[in-house]
């Protein structure tokens, strides 16, 4: 079995904790997020015959009281960037988080979750935004922590990419 540390980044209230709460196994309470600024959970995946255990570091988003700590990002083999599709301004923070992750981790696989896609009536992300991501070569999935849409496939995409990267460097 292979273990991989991944981190979940995004600004405050984009739905990171809901993604983790519903699809990832955890034992620690939400209090860790507001105190230590991070909570570690676990998710089991497979790539071919290979079992992969993801240690998901749900990192408290930037807000008035806390900044994302670089030390939490360090050592991650992959990154999930999350923004809230109903709040267009959260895209900008995803860009910032991406830059910071690159600065700390160099070139690691990542995937972008455009979350809350179940709230279509309030959806603010346009095809232009998605085109911008595609132009950058980013893999963006419209996800919903509520309905589970594209969440599993997002984790799978990232896991595949991490294992493929390991194979290519060996």
């Amino acid at each position: 079995m292979i273990q991989k540390k991944i981190c979940l980044l995004g600004s405050f209230a984009v739905g990171k904790t809901s993604l983790v709460g519903q699809f990832v196994k955890g034992i620690f309470s939400d209090e860790y997020l507001s105190t230590v600024g991070v909570r570690v959970d676990k998710k089991s995946m497979t790539v071919g015959d290979q079992a992969v255990e993801l240690l998901v570091w749900d990192i408290h988003g930037d807000d008035l009281f806390q900044r994302v700590r670089d030390n939490y990002i360090r050592g991650s083999a992959g990154v999930i960037l999350v923004f809230d599709g109903t709040r267009i301004e959260t895209i900008e923070s995803v860009m910032e988080m991406h830059e910071r992750a690159i600065a700390v981790l160099d070139d690691v696989p990542f995937v972008v979750f455009a979350n809350k896609c179940d709230l279509q009536s309030k959806w603010q992300v346009t095809s232009d935004h998605l085109a911008m991501f595609e132009k950058k070569g980013w893999h963006v999935l419209q996800t919903s922590a509520k309905t589970g849409e594209s969440v599993e496939s997002g984790f799978q995409f990232l896991t595949d990419a991490m294992i493929a990267k390991d194979s290519s460097t060996e």
Binding site: F28, E53, L55
Partner: peptide, 28 residues
Amino acid sequence: ETGLLLHHLANQTSTAADPNLVSGMLTA
């Protein structure tokens, strides 16, 4: 660097939460 668990040993009478998660949180 990663906070991943390399190995874990417990005495026979002890039980603990998932050591992988514990090691991650300890690192955090």
